[in-house]
Amino acid sequence: MIQLKQISKTYASGGRLVHALKDIQLHVTKGEIFGIIGHSGAGKSTLIRTINLLERPSTGQVVVDGVDMTALSQSKLQEERRSIGMIFQHFNLLSSLTVRENIAFPLRLAKRPKDAVKRRVDELIGLVGLQEHADKFPAQLSGGQKQRVGIARALATDPKVLLCDEATSALDPQTTQSILSLLLEINRRLHITIVLITHEMQVIRSICDRVAVLDSGEIVETGLVADVFLKPQHRTTRDFVAQVSELPEIAQGSTDGMSGRTQVRITFIGEQTYEPVLYHTMKEKNVPFAILQGTISRLKDVPYGQLVVELHASGGEAERTIAALREQGLDVEVLKHG
């Protein structure tokens, strides 16, 4: 659906050349929710704005649904942009227009018939749950209600892609969750491809299918959210995962007093999370164990569990037990050897 091919963006600032994006290669599949996470200044907003060419890349190609956006004339680009909706951190509503009029605005720009505009606006007001607020002005709305108007407006022209530029960062946690639930419902009901940027790992784990981690204008890690969240490889990714991890870090201190014992972190993904795999394996190997820490949670629709376990075994016995756990499809990381 979306392909970014060798995208770079440079600009001059204070007499020096700034590399905002560096050789970005990215593919977003039709119908998925794809997250891009990074710290402030990492290049997230620049990257998402290259998709609809609000930011024109210095080099590279942007292909959306088979169309090379970077090769279009200005008039053709304007036409193609109607298939790409966008919602913003600070809503960008027109203060002099009502909810209904804000949603209708892009349809009027597209010169749609009045009766078609009314039908579409009524449909979208129902979709985002603003039936009781249709004739209010933005100043009369809460932050969450304003963002719902922004979402409805972005969907007005029936786009194939919805871009979300820090769409929840100005909202409180409860409102954020309601907006994320709405985006997930829209994705499932309309099969629309969603690309969102954020600096919050909780947003990624709640609704995204895949994620790319951006650091200093470069993608340093990408993959399925479950893989990236549970097995982060890059320092920046580990920083983000630490924001929302339910498991405290295990102290990497002395192994004194651990003779004959081995500490491991075991990760379960999917339905295996609820199966007694650990119990059965330990019973078969006749290895006593103690659970030191543990959590069960979800990454979007995927359940997962993490346990820190102390095996009352060492040397070859511990290695055979760990191998047996891995044969069951579990990810096992050795933390301490006795």
Results as ranks from 00 to 15, higher is better:
residue 78 Q to E: 04
residue 80 E to V: 02
residue 81 R to V: 00
residue 83 S to M: 15
residue 83 S to T: 11
residue 83 S to L: 13
residue 86 M to Q: 02
residue 87 I to M: 08
residue 88 F to G: 03
residue 89 Q to E: 05
residue 91 F to Y: 15
residue 92 N to E: 01
residue 92 N to K: 06
residue 94 L to A: 15
residue 94 L to N: 10
residue 95 S to H: 10
residue 95 S to M: 09
residue 96 S to V: 03
residue 97 L to C: 04
residue 99 V to W: 12
residue 99 V to Q: 04
residue 99 V to S: 02
residue 102 N to V: 01
residue 103 I to F: 04
residue 103 I to V: 08
residue 104 A to T: 09
residue 104 A to E: 06
residue 107 L to F: 11
residue 107 L to W: 15
residue 111 K to N: 14
residue 113 P to V: 05
residue 113 P to N: 08
residue 114 K to Q: 14
residue 117 V to E: 14
residue 120 R to S: 09
residue 120 R to A: 07
residue 120 R to E: 01
residue 121 V to D: 00
residue 123 E to Y: 15
residue 124 L to T: 07
residue 124 L to S: 12
residue 124 L to M: 03
residue 125 I to S: 04
residue 126 G to V: 08
residue 129 G to N: 03
residue 129 G to W: 10
residue 133 H to Y: 14
residue 134 A to T: 01
residue 135 D to Q: 13
residue 136 K to C: 00
residue 138 P to F: 15
residue 138 P to R: 10
residue 140 Q to I: 02
residue 141 L to K: 12
residue 141 L to Y: 15
residue 146 K to M: 12
residue 146 K to P: 00
residue 147 Q to K: 06
residue 148 R to L: 03
residue 150 G to M: 07
residue 152 A to G: 00
residue 153 R to S: 05
residue 154 A to C: 08
residue 155 L to M: 05
residue 159 P to A: 10
residue 163 L to H: 05
residue 163 L to A: 05
residue 164 C to D: 07
residue 167 A to T: 11
residue 169 S to L: 07
residue 169 S to D: 04
residue 171 L to G: 02
residue 171 L to T: 05
residue 172 D to N: 06
residue 174 Q to N: 11
residue 176 T to F: 13
residue 177 Q to T: 06
residue 178 S to R: 15
residue 179 I to S: 05
residue 182 L to Q: 09
residue 187 N to H: 09
residue 190 L to M: 08
residue 194 I to A: 12
residue 194 I to R: 03
residue 195 V to H: 02
residue 196 L to F: 12
residue 196 L to K: 11
residue 196 L to R: 11
residue 196 L to W: 13
residue 197 I to V: 14
residue 198 T to L: 07
residue 205 R to E: 04
residue 205 R to Y: 14
residue 207 I to S: 03
residue 208 C to P: 00
residue 209 D to V: 13
residue 210 R to F: 05
